[in-house]
Every structure is written in structure tokens, then in C-alpha cells.
Amino acid sequence: MHVAIAGAGSVGRSIAAELLENGHRVLLIDKSPRAIKSDAVPEAEWLLADACELSALEEAHLQRCDVVIAATGDDKANLVVSLLAKTEFGVPRTVARVNHPDNEWLFSDEWGVDVSVSTPRIMSALVEEAVTVGDLVRLFTLRHSNANLVELTLPDDSPYVGSRAGDVPWPRDVVLVAILREHGIQIPEADRSLEAGDELLFVAAQESEAQLQHLLAPVEHREL
């Protein structure tokens, strides 16, 4: 896979190193000469250019990329890069970094963003996920499919503790993708029983989240 990353700061370089380790080709683009640290990620290609300029993206041959990641520290720049990548070069997949949570609503299909990643929101969600039991926690939003990755730690008083995963009447547009138990990952097969304290990971449509919450941890089964 060929990936272009706009923004060669610490975030962009870290993403590049991970992708290169997984066997992908990576091009890092930044307009600041100080950000061009080719010795930090020597396997990557580097381009000193403003990724918000159409001519720079033409020089980068963005039409060859499978994915473009807008990872600068400027939300406006990340939106412009995503929009140009999608509309001018037909890049199949765009991922954009959200620096300020107040700007999250802008990172949508209208600006060419397939997936937005908000670091403050992810950190907040991970804190909630670590300390809450019986409450649905949204970990990640998949805007392109109008679905979310959500987590719920099954409380002791859930009506489905001890039930087989295949016997639970899951709401429509909800898929159980993993059960985290005792520092391990359990495949959610139909015969797998649910235990109190299980961390259940779902991909769920937003409109089905409330129903999922009520199914697994209804108010009448929870401590007040």
C-alpha cells in the first residue's frame, strides 16, 4: 500500500515508522525545512512542500496513493489536504487528525474525510473505558459507514451474564467483534458464554447504541 502523510512532525513520523514496519510505502510531506528529518525515518520518501498547494500534491503524485493521512497540527490544513486528495486526485481513503475537539464536526465527507482521529476524544474515551462498568463508551467513530466502535464492561447484574453470545438478541446494526477477558481476547463465537467483567467490543450504528446499552445493562438491573 502506498501512503502519503501530510505533516512530518512527531505524529507523522511515528505513523510513518509503523506503516513502514508493516511493509507499506510511505511519503512524508512538510513545508518546514526543520521537519525534514530523513535520518529519523530513512526508509520513507520525503518531500519539502506545502501539502495545501495543488502543485505540491501533483509533484507528490498523489493519484498513486491508496491512503492519504493529514497529520499536521493545523486543523484547517488537514481539511484542505483531505479535500484535495479526495476531489482532485481520487484517493480511495483519507484519514485526518483532529487537533481541537470543537472542530470535529467539520471532519466529514463534505471535506473529503473518510476517517477522523481526535486525540483528545480518544484519550477521554480510554479513561472512561478503564473506569466505567455497565456504561457504553464510544471509542472511535467510523464516519464513512455511520458506525462507531463502542465498549461496554458487562456488570455483575446484567441479565445476560452466563448467556451464550448467540442467544443474546443483539439490536439491529450491532456486531460483537471481540470479548476482552483476563488480559486475553476471546472470539465471540455463538457458544461463547458472557461473564461479568467482560469488556465487549462492538461495531454499532449510532442509532442502535441506546438499545444496546439498555439490553446489556438496563437501569432496573443496575445499582443506584
Rank of each mutant, 00 (worst) to 15 (best):
V95S: 09
R164S: 11
W105L: 12
E129K: 04
N103A: 09
L180W: 01
R143M: 08
V161K: 12
S116P: 08
L84E: 02
E128P: 00
A125I: 08
P101Q: 07
A130R: 07
S158C: 03
V137N: 04
G90V: 02
P101C: 05
S145I: 15
L136A: 11
I187Y: 12
F202C: 07
W105M: 07
A125H: 07
V137K: 04
G184R: 06
A125S: 13
T87I: 00
R138S: 14
R192W: 13
L136R: 06
R143W: 03
N146D: 15
S163C: 12
A125Y: 08
H183T: 10
E189D: 14
I179Q: 08
H144Y: 05
M123P: 03
R121E: 10
H144K: 06
A165C: 11
D198R: 12
D167M: 06
V113C: 02
P120A: 10
L180V: 12
L83H: 03
P159V: 14
N146I: 08
L152R: 07
I122S: 01
L83V: 00
V98F: 01
V127A: 00
F140H: 15
P188A: 08
A165L: 10
T132M: 10
A96V: 04
E128C: 09
E151N: 13
A204R: 02
L194S: 04
A165G: 04
D173I: 00
S82M: 00
P101K: 07
I179C: 03
W170A: 10
D156H: 15
A205F: 03
Q186L: 15
R143Q: 12
L84P: 03
P101N: 06
L154A: 06
M123N: 11
A165P: 04
W111V: 09
P120W: 06
P171C: 06
E110R: 02
T153I: 06
L139E: 13
A85P: 01
R121F: 07
A204G: 07
L106F: 14
S118I: 04
W170P: 09
V161H: 12
D167A: 14
A147E: 15
R143N: 12
W111K: 00
D173S: 08
L83P: 00
N148M: 13
L154W: 04
V161P: 10
E182M: 05
R192Q: 15
A130N: 11
R172T: 09
L176G: 06
V177C: 05
F107G: 03
A205K: 03
R192M: 15
V127D: 01
R93V: 15
W105A: 13
D173M: 10
R143S: 12
N103L: 07
V115F: 09
G112Q: 02
R97C: 11
R138V: 14
L142E: 05
G134L: 08
E110Q: 00
V137F: 05
D167G: 02
V95A: 04
Y160W: 14
P169G: 09
L149K: 10
S193F: 08
I179P: 01
N103W: 09
L152Y: 01
V161Q: 12
M123A: 14
A125L: 06
G134T: 04
E189C: 05
D167W: 04
